[in-house]
């Protein structure tokens, strides 16, 4: 599976209140939540997102704070299929897989990705090709169990398949 798009970059310790402020947690609808994605960071942020052509790039500890699954749901709902970060907060990382959002963890390599860079992400090869800088970043393949959850479209669909197997 390959993904193409341009990057939007955010900093370290982006918390779930920034990703989706609590006042919007009165719905479970991905499109509605997606329309408020990152509103706790910048109310205009969402306007820069081009659905299925934008990657969210973050620093350390992305998704810290609350356990709200609405955070990865809002990112998926905004049309962003992949997040690339230096590192993730534990609950967000688990939630991302469960919600079908790909969380790539690349450590210091994240410094090589700048705002507006054009990337091609190849999940099979485990590469992030930065077309703007010409640099290729590799990442280890996802653990099998995590890949299975993502391939099923998230944990709920995965459990459904298990229950029906």
């Amino acid at each position: 599976m390959k993904y193409n798009g341009k990057t939007l970059c955010v900093g370290d310790h982006i918390d779930t209140d920034a990703i989706i402020p609590a006042r919007f947690l009165v719905t479970t609808d991905p499109v509605e939540l997606g329309s408020h994605c990152m509103e706790g960071l910048d109310p205009e942020w969402i306007k820069q997102v081009k659905p299925n052509a934008t990657f969210l790039v973050a620093g350390r500890n992305f998704g810290c704070g609350s356990s709200r699954e609405h955070a990865p749901v809002a990112i998926v709902g905004a049309g962003i299929p992949v997040v690339i970060a230096h590192s993730y907060a534990r609950i967000f990382y688990r939630n991302a897989f469960n919600m079908g959002l790909i969380p790539l963890e690349i450590g210091d390599e994240v410094e090589n990705i700048k705002p507006g860079d054009e990337l091609e992400i190849d999940m099979t090869a485990g590469t992030i090709a930065n077309k703007t800088s010409g640099k290729v970043i590799t990442f280890p393949p996802l653990p099998e169990a995590m890949a299975a959850i993502l391939n099923a479209g998230g944990l709920a669909e995965y459990v459904k398949k298990q229950l029906n197997a």
Partner: peptide
Amino acid sequence: ADSHTCTYGGIGAFATGMGSTDVA
């Protein structure tokens, strides 16, 4: 399905927060 589930460690429980679907 709340990050502050870890509170119960105060009474010697291993308690941790997860997302709604893990909890489901």
